[in-house]
Amino acid sequence: MRLDPAAVIGVGALAVILLWWWRSRSDLRRARLPPELRSACLVYAECLFQSTGPVSISARVDRVYRNAAGVLVLVELKTRETNRMYQSDVIELSAQRVALMAHTGDVVADYAYIVTERPDGFRMGCHQVRLMAHADVISLATRRGKLFVERVEPQTTCSSGVCRKCAFVQSCDLPWV
């Protein structure tokens, strides 16, 4: 069987184009990271971790990178219409840190990154956030547990926007809901 030279050249060209496309996509994803993590090693992606103790915290991480100093750094990917982070993001990442440290015993940075992009894939920004202390995460988880079994009274928020999105808004008697 004789190979057609034009077909061989065409297949070769297609392979080069596919390789270029794959590498450019990989470079684009890496460019979305903060400069500190562009040369870091991806250690975990979409993994579940759990802490043990009086309060058990389970958390699924989006991405965890090992930086040049050997410290693990959490990265949360968010698809949003606006380039901003929320306090709930900090709580989520802080819980991830507690679960990851307890599960692996590794040192995890006390800061993390939130990378935002629009639904169309356009990258908007990268926010570095300071994570909550371990004791504060445990305290928050304990209070949440007590709220669900109605051992403590819920507190109001200073943000009417948060109230409007609350699952309990119908049973609330705040003036702005």
Rank of each mutant, 00 (worst) to 15 (best):
M1E: 12
R2C: 02
R2Y: 08
P5G: 02
A6D: 14
A7R: 10
V8F: 14
V8D: 11
G10A: 15
A13M: 15
A13F: 15
A13K: 14
A15N: 15
A15F: 15
W20D: 14
W21E: 14
W22Q: 12
R23P: 15
S24H: 14
S24D: 15
D27C: 05
L28N: 13
R30Y: 15
R30P: 14
E36Q: 12
E36R: 10
L37N: 13
R38S: 06
R38I: 07
S39D: 15
A40T: 05
V43C: 04
V43R: 08
A45Y: 15
E46F: 07
E46A: 04
E46V: 00
C47L: 02
C47K: 05
L48N: 10
S51Y: 05
S51C: 04
T52E: 15
T52K: 09
G53R: 07
G53H: 03
P54S: 01
V55M: 02
S56P: 00
I57Y: 10
A59R: 09
R60I: 03
D62Y: 10
V64Y: 12
V64M: 06
V64D: 09
Y65G: 00
R66L: 02
A68T: 00
A68E: 01
A69Q: 11
V71G: 02
L72E: 07
L72N: 05
L72F: 08
L74H: 09
V75T: 05
V75E: 06
V75G: 03
L77Q: 11
K78E: 14
R80F: 09
R84V: 07
Y86L: 04
D89F: 09
V90K: 07
V90M: 06
I91G: 06
I91D: 14
E92Y: 10
S94H: 11
S94Q: 11
Q96C: 13
Q96P: 10
R97W: 10
R97A: 06
R97T: 04
A99Y: 15
L100H: 08
H103T: 01
G105V: 02
V107Y: 00
V108Q: 02
V108Y: 13
V108L: 05
V108F: 13
A109M: 04
A109S: 09
D110K: 06
D110C: 04
A112Q: 04
A112V: 04
Y113Q: 01
Y113V: 04
I114R: 08
I114Y: 15
V115G: 04
R118F: 11
R118A: 11
P119N: 07
P119K: 04
R123C: 08
R123I: 05
M124P: 08
G125S: 09
C126P: 06
Q128H: 12
L131V: 06
L131E: 08
A133P: 14
D136K: 10
V137F: 14
I138D: 11
I138R: 11
S139Y: 03
A141Y: 13
R144C: 03
G145E: 13
F148T: 03
V149C: 12
V149N: 10
E150S: 09
R151S: 07
R151T: 03
T156E: 14
T157A: 05
T157C: 12
T157M: 06
S159A: 04
G161F: 05
G161L: 02
V162Y: 12
C163A: 10
K165Q: 10
F168D: 12
F168Q: 10
V169A: 06
V169S: 08
Q170Y: 10
Q170G: 04
D173E: 02
L174M: 08
W176C: 02
V177I: 07
